[in-house]
Design a protein around this nucleic acid. Structure first.
Lengths: 246, 246
DNA sequence: CGCCTTCTTGATGCGGTTCAAGTAAAGTGG
DNA sequence: CCACTTTACTTGAACCGCATCAAGAAGGCG
């Protein structure tokens, strides 16, 4: 039995301090544009690669990722999608869906009315600005990823991605009391995300573990020494402002 | 003496078929928001890295690039900016300017009124949609770049970037009768763009030249065998639709 | 229980980096 | 107009970070 449809007023995500508050009329508008929810199992294709899907989603619960593959099967994971992230902005605007989206865990998405965008801009310009903000923020994450894959060593990449994902997950309330988060990526996922081989990710993770910098086992990640991990990863992120949630 | 200020009505870029037509009221609005022009010499910093610049530009003429550097000096070029590209959307929306922008050739930018964005959305929703389209399109280019740096061989990256840049430049009317374009990137730029060393870019380019696939000399690029170059680069791009120009 | 996926470890080798030196061309100042 | 500098490009030699191949161990799960 699928989980019940959640009205935006009682959206559990929106309660989080990480998200920018919305006005009542804005919330009502968003609610009106929400046409349903979709659930996918872990490993399922949310948007098959190459398929055109003119549908805009918000990730309500679970983790997913965007990816592209080369004709011969080499895969690059472009970004990890966490709760609150927008899915399908590119497909909605650009004619082709340039990348696939796959669920890492069981996932719930809020589906919005197709071609809602112009309505948003015309009736709630501030929400339109928020959407563009989200797009710009995604591009900033991509910038960091490209810097890492292009110019960081394997050790730096692994250290940096762990800090990055831990922070993003904790920001949307995924950390327990001891700062642990559920971490559904396999080492193969990390490899495809970082432009490395799975074997090398394995060896690099072990070095971090033995140094006591991280604990990563049984699908749970905890940062052992944040300062050291940042230093190893050459990773200093700017503080995240409260972000919009559509 | 700086070049004269060009009114948007007589914008030489807008005449190109690559760009989506605008209505008269839209054009008038854009004109009203244009507060000036800025010129930079080749090699100059348009936006210094780490500096906050709440200013939105359109690149009117010349080439530039976005980049990030690590504390120890390793540099990654994130994207090449060609005429018609928007500059500073991230800085405008996000509080920090996460990357620097540097001119590759002498460059002219149209500067828009700061904080114009909300005005755009409120008064011309379709233009707002266009801006989001541009942001999504930039992210698509970043996706490709990340796939290349993460998963393509050096040979494939070099071949692919030459096809990509040639196509983009030709699209905005930079090709002469024989399909040659002015190509202001040094091999060091290519290296920083592709996540390679300059030495290896040099050797890879020579292999392409000796195979007759490209001619690249004296700052001019011509594609010798497009089909072969695409095959080598594993590079098949989707056809570019007419794009908006703000 | 048997299968499948994930993780682990060792051995080998290549693609690409680094270091170094030299050539060529384009400014720059006297 | 010519020394001097600077920047871009080129080539060779040595090395190493990471990939690849292979095989085994340790769980989940039907």
């Amino acid at each position: 039995m699928p989980p019940p449809i959640i009205p935006c007023i009682r959206c559990p995500l929106r309660a989080h301090a990480a998200f920018k508050p919305v006005t009542a009329p804005q919330l009502g508008f968003i609610q009106k544009k929400k046409v349903g929810q979709s659930d996918f199992a872990a490993g399922e294709a949310v948007v098959p690669e190459g398929e055109v899907s003119h549908r805009l989603y918000t990730l309500l619960a679970g983790w997913a990722f965007r990816f592209k593959t080369l004709p011969d099967g080499r895969r690059q994971i472009l970004n990890i999608l966490l709760p609150g992230d927008l899915v399908g902005l590119q497909s909605e605007l650009l004619s082709a869906s340039p990348h696939g989206v796959e669920a890492l865990t069981p996932v719930t998405l809020c589906a919005f009315q197709r071609d809602m965008m112009l309505d948003v801009y015309a009736n709630h310009p501030e929400l339109g600005l928020d959407i563009t903000w989200i797009a710009a923020n995604e591009e900033r994450i991509m910038d960091d990823a490209l810097l890492g894959v292009g110019r960081r060593t394997a050790m730096e990449r692994v250290a940096a991605i762990l800090v990055h994902l831990h922070k993003r997950a904790a920001n949307v309330g995924q950390a327990d009391g001891e700062g642990r988060i559920a971490f559904p990526l396999t080492q193969t996922h990390l490899a495809d995300l970082l432009g490395l081989s799975a074997v090398h990710v394995n060896r690099t993770l072990q070095r971090l573990r033995h140094g006591g910098l991280v604990r990563l086992e049984g699908g749970t990640l905890a940062i052992g020494d944040l300062r050291a991990l940042r230093r190893v990863g050459q990773y200093w992120e700017q503080p995240a402002p409260r972000r919009p949630l559509i």
